[in-house]
């Protein structure tokens, strides 16, 4: 069965997007391999000397998804995206516009504006957003290629705190919904996939795990399990019991 994740016309077999932050460079390659990730996020910053080029630690063939972290306005996000393209990162861009340093919550309004500027300039924008249906619709209209609602604050590992609102986005938005930020455990990734999320983006859950490679594997399997369950259609829920064994032919006498 062919079940591809399609973002901006590009096909992916894996539904696990891995962030590359907080890792020792030496561990990134193994984490990506064991996660089976085909998309890896990166950030752009000032570089001052050759202190280890992260690109050399990401397996060949992986699609790079630079983010606009550090941007506080749509204009800043647009500039970072153009820098990413100039640095050879292609057209995919994860829009992150944040000016709240305590909870790192995205600014949906500026994010939608950035989406429009970037889509017009030929980028494939993937906006990181607070799961609000109206804002998501604005981003769709602005040219988003997927919507990336947060499950919980970035790096918190709190899990699906916004579950019911992500569910609304899945119901109402025709683009892939990629749950991003806050997923702390494979079970939470599986749960999001079961309810119809198109993919999971995780970073801290893996980077801060006791064993990075094993956790990358666990996430991979959980995401596949959740996707398979979603496609299969989960069984019904009843208030009372419904016997699984026949209610006739009892061995009494």
């Amino acid at each position: 069965m062919s079940d591809k994740l399609i973002i901006g016309g590009h096909e992916f077999s894996s539904r696990f997007i891995l962030g590359s932050g907080k890792f020792d460079l030496d561990l990134i390659n193994a984490a990506v391999e064991h996660a089976g990730a085909e998309i890896v996020t990166l950030a752009l910053r000032r570089v001052n000397s050759f202190s280890g080029n992260i690109l050399e630690h990401i397996p060949a063939g992986v699609t790079l998804l630079p983010n606009t972290s550090g941007a506080r306005t749509a204009e800043e996000a647009y500039k970072i995206a153009r820098l990413a393209r100039e640095a050879g990162c292609g057209e995919f861009i994860k829009i992150e516009v944040i000016h709240d340093s305590k909870y790192l919550l995205p600014d949906n309004y500026e994010t939608a504006k950035a989406c429009e500027m970037l889509a017009k300039d030929g980028f494939i924008p993937l906006p990181y957003m607070y799961p609000d249906l109206n804002a998501a619709r604005d981003m769709v209209n602005a040219g988003a290629a997927a919507i990336m609602p947060l499950a919980a604050p970035i790096g918190s590992n709190q899990g699906l705190a916004t579950k019911q609102f992500i569910r609304i986005l899945i119901e109402e938005i025709d683009l892939p919904i990629i749950v991003d930020a806050g997923i702390g455990k494979p079970s939470q990734a599986c749960e999001a996939m079961e309810m119809g999320a198109a993919a999971i983006m995780a970073n801290t859950a893996i980077a801060t795990a006791g064993n990075i490679v094993e956790m990358a594997k666990a996430f991979k399997h959980a995401i596949i399990a959740g996707r398979t369950a979603y496609l299969a259609g989960t069984g019904r829920v009843l208030d009372k019991a419904s016997a699984s064994s026949p209610l006739t032919g009892f061995i009494r006498e």
């Binding site: 962030g19 590359s20 996020t41 950030a43 752009l44 630079p66 972290s69 640095a87 990162c89």
Partner: peptide
């Protein structure tokens, strides 16, 4: 002059 490159990020 600003010199920008890629670093790990989520």
């Amino acid at each position: 002059v600003e010199i920008i490159g890629f670093v790990g990020g989520g």
